[in-house]
């Protein structure tokens, strides 16, 4: 009976032309969170948060929203049903980026002042472990099987591979200067690490930590030092990799097979983080210096809309359902 029900739900989703998801955007300077409807591309509402909201993620069931309130030294947990603040998690000081285990628990946080990655049980609401990493931990990525969490350290310039069972560092890969984001491919065979100051994205084989290719960027009329890769998202079929280029105001499109840059899409100013809708039809980018979100049509590779949000949008996540 249950299986039957599931099948029919799946059929409904497949058949539906445009499923409505909710897009959540943290506004770093506004101390708010903006909700956007993915169908109408209109702002639903704006919610107050703690001080300096940055990293944001959502539970696999879509019920809980996790927000790094960096200057409140807390991870705030919101109930997505009514956007009420449920509670705060112990986060260590100044949490910036976070990633959830694919099962929904635990949560892995980069504490940039203390050179540690904090592992938090989101149900028991307690710290499970603190893993010492390099100087200024920043980006957090988790492998699709949940066995490895990768942290990048901005001054040590490494991707640290952490075993999620033992909380041990099992491997380190030296990348270019100031690595910001670590993102696994959906099949787990590649790890993408952006280097903001180095101006590159390293494509790494997670099985041995070797760099397969280092992808550079060039846009006519833009000085090389403005090409500062931050956010990285890849479609689940691996065909398209999107890289947010910060003050270059562009999102680069990399072909997954050749690992060559094929396109640069003009978006708002200082583009950092990005998130797909679960059907991967749309990609949302946060543009911190133009106070808006750009919406990219993933199939057509076109920017279809800019949506004004709060002050200095930083992080973005989309509901799974």
């Amino acid at each position: 009976m249950k299986r039957l029900l599931l099948c029919s739900v799946a059929a409904l989703v497949m058949g539906g032309s445009a499923q409505a998801y909710t897009v959540y955007v943290t506004n770093e300077k506004g101390n708010t969170l903006t909700r956007i409807d993915s169908t109408t591309l209109e702002v639903i509402d704006t919610v107050r948060t703690g001080q300096r909201p940055r990293g944001i993620t959502i539970s696999p069931d879509g019920a809980s929203l996790y927000v790094c309130a960096s200057d409140s030294d807390a991870v705030e947990v919101y109930d997505t049903a009514d956007m009420s603040l449920r509670h705060s998690l112990p986060s260590g000081p100044n949490p910036e980026q976070l990633v959830l285990h694919p099962s929904g628990n635990p949560l892995y946080l980069a504490n940039e002042d203390d050179n540690i990655v904090t592992v938090v049980d989101v149900v028991a609401r307690r710290v499970l472990a603190e893993v010492p990493v390099g100087i200024e931990p920043e980006g957090m990525g988790v492998s699709p099987d949940g066995k490895i969490v990768v942290n990048t350290s901005e001054t040590t310039n490494m991707a640290h591979f952490i075993d999620t069972e033992t909380f041990e560092i099992v491997q380190n890969t030296l990348v270019d200067s100031r690595p910001r984001i670590a993102e696994f491919s959906a099949d787990g065979t590649r790890l993408y690490v952006s280097a903001e100051i180095g101006g590159t994205v390293s494509v790494i084989d997670p099985s041995n930590g070797e760099i397969i290719k280092t992808v550079g960027f060039a846009v006519p009329g833009i000085v090389p030092e403005a090409l500062q890769p931050v956010g990285v998202r890849a479609t689940s079929d691996g065909a398209k990799i999107f890289v947010a280029l910060g003050p270059a105001n562009r999102v680069a499109v990399i072909d997954g097979a050749s690992l060559e840059v094929t396109d640069y899409l003009l978006v708002g100013q200082r583009v950092w983080q990005m998130a797909f809708t679960p059907d991967e039809k749309l990609l949302f980018t946060t543009n911190g210096n133009s106070n808006d979100v750009s919406v990219i049509d993933v199939e057509a590779l076109k920017v279809v809309k800019s949506i004004p949000v709060g002050e200095q949008p930083w992080g973005v996540t989309v509901s799974p359902n």
């Binding site: 603190e130 909380f167 560092i169």
Partner: peptide, 16 residues
Amino acid sequence: MRRLALAVGLCLAPLI
């Protein structure tokens, strides 16, 4: 919590 952190620190030792 402190003990855990220490244990994790020791785990790094083989790498050093």
